[in-house]
Design a protein around this nucleic acid. Structure first.
Lengths: 221, 221
DNA sequence: CCTTTCCATTGACCTAGGTCAATATTGATT
DNA sequence: AATCAATATTGACCTAGGTCAATGGAAAGG
């Protein structure tokens, strides 16, 4: 069955037995979400959590003035909204599909039962949350201790490692969304791309960024 | 025994049976740390995690230029450094005792075994990490979407709820440390205290802050 | 293929808040 | 109490980056 295959391939459910995977697949519900559609809102009651099967989803907060801060961008295999599952509070942020997406939904109560029953699932979940905490700590450090060029440099270096290419990376999100992820606004990001290009560090061709001076870029971090 | 009593009173180990508490107490080691002493450094290998019995501990990151960003301040009953336990990476930040402190140390391997064996311990841990993630999300929102007066207002309101007093709160850390927690520097914090005083929102007497206009303060958030 | 809508860029401007330096105040140590 | 060190405040200054506004480009839907 398709669901079982997908969950078996995810980090969260890796290393589980056939029987365990079966039980998990049985409580999962498939949901299709169109590009731009909301998956949940901050303060919504959390009746369960989701896992991305296809597409890309952003988790974000909004200020009263309408500025957006993206907390995460999640792709296939990654769980979203799992935080409220374990202490029964509402969702702490909003979730929107960046492109047409297919998600799995796991109802809270059933999932907690499975976690209680299967220690390796609990450990996987603990590892998942730990990883998230680590990323958040890095994001706080970035926002507070680095300036925007430094944050952009870090992101480009991260992408370059992710994509296994030292000289060229492809942005996986629109530049405006990248601005929001880096805690700034499109205008500022645009200027910094321009400045880094003048300095000979990079060249920008739409979503493709050529890294001409990896050393210099690293020095900006 | 003293250790067992302390453990039983903490959130992390609440609701566990006598037998479970015994086993946990057996693997714990008491450590005394003097004010200003380091508990661990970022990038140190994590051989286990700690729980605060007495005192107060800050978790923080440093920039190359020497600016500090405090991620958490933890007091009695709160675990620290538990994140690396579940995926075997080094500590993501530094930990220092703000005052003389007594900690419990739990070796990694033994603790993971206990978590695997006791589902309610695993669930408590999951709840703990979820809470941390929620706090981090709030901190990122704060840093990115609010200006310093808004962050200070949030902190004072939080303290006021914490201390159950609508009209007066007592800072539990030096102002310089508060600046670092709010992602700013002492000079700026000092000026904002002065400005809020001029505006009739608060009065500052050392570490005691009188909240004269709770409404107005909330409006700043 | 067209057109409408979203996305990105650029310029002029302004302000929050960081830097540096001097001084004041608090608290710890003898 | 006296001294020293840490902490806090204040002033003068400057710059990173946000705001507002105009325009150019790309891409999705008909």
């Amino acid at each position: 069955m398709e669901i079982k295959k997908s969950i078996a391939a995810s980090v969260l459910f890796s290393g589980l037995s056939e029987e365990e995977l079966d039980k998990i697949a049985r409580i999962a519900v498939v949901k299709k979400i169109a590009r731009g559609e909301m998956i949940f809102f901050e303060h919504d009651e959390a009746t369960g959590f989701y896992m991305v099967l296809e597409g890309r989803v952003k988790i974000y907060k909004m200020s009263l003035e309408g500025k957006e801060q993206i907390l995460h961008i999640f792709g296939p295999g990654e769980p979203i909204g799992e935080v409220p599952v374990f202490h029964g509070q509402p969702f702490p942020a909003n979730a929107m599909a960046l492109v047409n997406a297919i998600l799995l939904f796991f109802p809270r109560r059933e999932f907690v039962n499975l976690v209680t029953a299967y220690p390796s699932l609990a450990l996987n979940m603990l590892a998942m949350l730990s990883l998230r905490l680590r990323r958040f700590a890095a994001q706080i450090e970035s926002l507070s201790l680095k300036e925007v060029p430094g944050r952009l440099a870090s992101y480009l270096i991260y992408l370059s490692e992710e994509q296994g290419s030292a000289t060229q990376v492809t942005l996986d999100i629109p530049k405006g969304q990248l601005a929001s992820l880096l805690g700034t606004i499109p205008e500022t990001l645009s200027r910094i791309f321009a400045r880094m290009t003048e300095e000979g560090l990079i060249r920008v061709e739409g979503r493709i960024i050529h890294i001409d001076d990896p050393e210099g870029l690293r020095a900006k971090e």
